[in-house]
Amino acid sequence: MKPGKVYPTALRAVEDVFDGAVVMLGGFGGPGLPQSLVKALIEQGARDLTFICNTCFEPKPDEHDVARLVDHGRVRKLITTFIGRPNQEMPALDLWRRGKIEIEMVPQGILAERMRAAATGLGGIFIPNGVGTVFEDGQEKRTFDGQEYILATPLKADFALIGAHQADPLGNLTYRLTQRNYNPTMAAAADVTIAEVRELVETGEIDPERVVTPGIYVDRLVVAERGI
């Protein structure tokens, strides 16, 4: 067991996120989005970051998400599945048109599976999604049992910022309802995983059968700021 996973502040927990780092950010909309960690990262100042996350909508003053980081000029590349609503203009699109950021669009299931490949030590996986679409361009294709598949390569990160419900000091995590989303996969697909939880409890207080993310995947823990 690694000692001292619990950090006193979100800012301390993200202190070593370096310029140019690849960062996974959990959450599907609000549930599971580690807002204290995003807020701390804005304060910390790292630049040229690549973010792997589900969506990027327009920045909202009361929500600390990837759009705020884009708005602060910290993002060089977004690997995501959804950029705003179809007819919506927003900073990320404007920056993309001016060549200031890159956007890589990935279908949700492929995003999850590419991260899972990294998380589980696989060199690549063959998936049926995207065959006959722009997503097969340049990818290796194979036919198994009469069906075509395209190669998806592992997607890993330097850091994963994830959100969960409860943690114990060993880093075991529980989630509530739809809070889980990409968080357990991201936790296992990054070199350093930083989890933000609502509540830190004593070792033994979490029913071991309720643990979704075992502590082996979690390096740092912070308790969410009040009101976030």
Partner: peptide, 19 residues
């Protein structure tokens, strides 16, 4: 994706269409 927008919104549609 509407090509004029330049960036699409794929979400889970491609997974659902196939699966």
């Amino acid at each position: 994706m509407v090509p004029q927008r330049g960036v699409g919104n794929i979400g889970g549609a491609m997974d659902l269409a196939v699966g």
